[in-house]
Nucleic acid binder design. Structure first.
Lengths: 233, 233
DNA sequence: TGCATATTTCTTGTCGACAAAATAAATACA
DNA sequence: TGTATTTATTTTGTCGACAAGAAATATGCA
């Protein structure tokens, strides 16, 4: 808290909203603020040492992404994870894995792969170090980089939303593994990247699908058993 | 302008933001506010008879959906239609047509089809009346209803975003037809709905794809010739 | 004591005003 | 006259304060 209030007077105009937005977003996605946590504007304005106006703007943006729910004239709280519609989430996630990887195999440029490979190294390091939070974020960054090399901003932004939403679920998931993840994931990533680099569109799509479906299957073992994951196009 | 200012004193608390948001959104999507139009907060606050605060909140939400662009500390304007990345748009649109229709064939319930059929009637009426704006909105409503009967909120919301974004392009497109649209579209809709009702998943997906690709192809004839529309999964 | 109504408290929604940033206009100087 | 610097204007970002709605508490009455 001290870190934030100390910035009170050395803040650039317009930066406040972004700071609040980023911090709250991370706290929500990392389950530091678990679903259902009340969000109080005055409390936040005291915490960040600014008036309610910029806080409010950050909250509006978070609400726009569905991360918080606002009851009119009443309280606002961190939105619940929708376990009932989890199958929707998994369907969408698998499809986006497939589509973005496939497009990456088609349209990537050499310089994209450098970034991707660097992020894959980061992910491997995180697995080696058994750092769950780092695994989640580097994994997301890696797949987003692949998606971006496919050059379709609509798919990328939906994928990004899904991966973020997933951070909340994955946080639970990784915990169940005692924050240890098999190296197989690292190898699968390598195979996917190789297929993309070789521009083997079908292989890239198949590997991405298998990768995604396997992750989903493992998560589902932990959750209410959804029985509707069979997207075939 | 009078309509809006007259509501100055009879407004329910909290409703202002929604009103401003809805109106501006429609004006942008219907090209009443063409891309690049400057958005002035004080001007809007005078127009709607309220302070800048609720105006600002509406603008933040619009910016969140990419409908306006905000230059920090400077002007904010209606965002440009991205003709350069149009292929991305078409790829995403076609895929969403396919996925949502396919899921509808799988998971729709009888009561969903009543709504869908009613909206199809509305669309047919609009075509008959040669009312371009009505065609655009009823067409979007119809396909969204189909999507919703597929019960995947992630796909539905991306599809909704795409159809809205499309309203700006379609507005140009329909104009090129002199606001007349062939009845073929009505027939194609009927076929799609029948396939969904029969739960013929493959047929529904194929018809939706053909429907979408045909529309896209016709739009592309009007635009910068994009050469990257060949999504095959 | 139990329930309905009134009052208080608490949080959000809105407002008007001020300050900072950027742009446009004006002035000074060569 | 042309350019650089200074000043004014415009527009956004932030603030503190107030009002409305809802929830919590207190009061009145049977």
């Amino acid at each position: 808290m001290d870190n934030e209030t100390s910035l009170r007077n050395e803040r650039k105009r317009g930066s406040g909203v972004k700071v609040v937005y980023d911090i709250l977003r991370d706290e929500i996605l990392d389950l530091e603020l678990p679903p259902g946590s009340p969000i109080d504007e005055v409390q936040l304005s005291e915490r960040f040492g600014m008036s309610r106006t910029p806080i409010r703007e950050a909250l509006v943006r978070l609400a726009g992404e569905g991360l918080i729910d606002t009851l009119p004239n009443r309280s606002t709280m961190v939105s619940q994870i929708d376990f009932l519609n989890m199958h929707s989430y998994f369907d969408a996630l698998v499809l986006m894995y497939r589509v973005t990887t496939q497009l990456a195999a088609k349209y990537h440029r050499p310089e994209d792969l450098e970034i991707v490979r660097a992020l894959q190294t980061d992910f491997a390091d995180a697995v080696e170090a058994q750092d769950a939070l780092a695994m989640i974020s580097t994994n997301a960054a890696l797949h987003l980089a692949i998606a971006e090399s496919g050059r379709n901003s609509y798919f990328t932004s939906l994928f990004s939303r899904l991966l973020n939403e997933g951070r909340r679920i994955l946080r639970l998931y990784y915990q169940s593994y005692n924050d240890r993840l098999p190296r197989r994931f690292v190898e699968e990533h390598d195979e996917i990247i190789d297929a993309v680099a070789a521009r083997d569109i079908e292989l890239a799509e198949r590997l991405a699908r298998e990768h995604a479906e396997q992750i989903v299957a493992q998560i589902q073992k932990l959750l209410v058993r959804g029985d509707r994951l069979d997207v075939r196009l």
